[in-house]
Amino acid sequence: MFMKIGSDLRPSSIQPDPMCPDVHHVMSISQETSDIYTLKLQPTERREAVRFAPGQFNMLYAFGVGECAISISGDPTVNNVTEHTIRRVGLVTGTLGSVRAGDSIGVRGPFGTPWPMDQARGRDVLLIAGGIGMAPLRPVIMDVLANRENYKELTILSGSRDPEGILFADELLTWKKQPGVDSKVTVDHADSRWNGNVGVVTTLVNRTVKDPKDTIAFVCGPEIMMRYAVTELQKNGLGKDQIYLSLERNMKCAIGLCGHCQFGSEFICRDGPVFRYDRIEFWLNQREL
């Protein structure tokens, strides 16, 4: 008989519009570094508990100014509170940075693929972060610490521009003291008052990997840094399927409909932001994508 039209669609009842934000209440705003701050948010009206998985992101809306994609940096084991660690880079992130506790902002999400915590179970977990790239990895650390028995060694390698720019510096020291956790920090630029590591974060990878066959690496930072990190990880014996990256592109809708975040065949918002390296290797090596 006849072909069905429009894939058997029937008119929908009123559904929540995926493009319309929910109101969130700002619980606190705290300064992390000179240009990075953290917002702690709580939904004001929402029926079910807001949960997220490490690596996912929200779209944050500054009233009348615009929206931007920000990864969730808080504790995944706590419901209904989301933290976002944000760098002031433009109008929206600048405006969000001037909110005060008690203010409201709009939130859509959570969106995107999480870090594969199931793949990390029973293995050494190696995190490599560059700059603000530490933000989406913080929930991984919290998850590992909350479920310590599920994972072997946790190693955190963190790179920043200079000593003042080290994100979560105090927490990195606290985490390092936990059993089975090591963290190494390095900066690209320092004068002789700094007696920590100087050099790009990828130089820390050497001699960090102990059991390459049983290690999983999660990497987040500037794209160039991630490419170098992948090279170092491979030199140290990790396979392409043991390396996961979190990528970034311009996003407008976060639901795979606006076309902005395309990265070759992938939509970063829908298929990512977390990708296994071998899935995006071809595209990562193309220029101006």
């Binding site: 320092a190 002789s192 590591n197 001699r207």
Partner: peptide, 22 residues
């Protein structure tokens, strides 16, 4: 331990990189 490779600039000493065990 750890050593620093330092460029002795006139106003301040710039650490170019640090090197450690291995």
């Amino acid at each position: 331990g750890r050593v620093a490779v330092v460029f002795p600039a006139p106003q301040r000493e710039l650490t170019i990189q640090t090197l450690s065990a291995g």
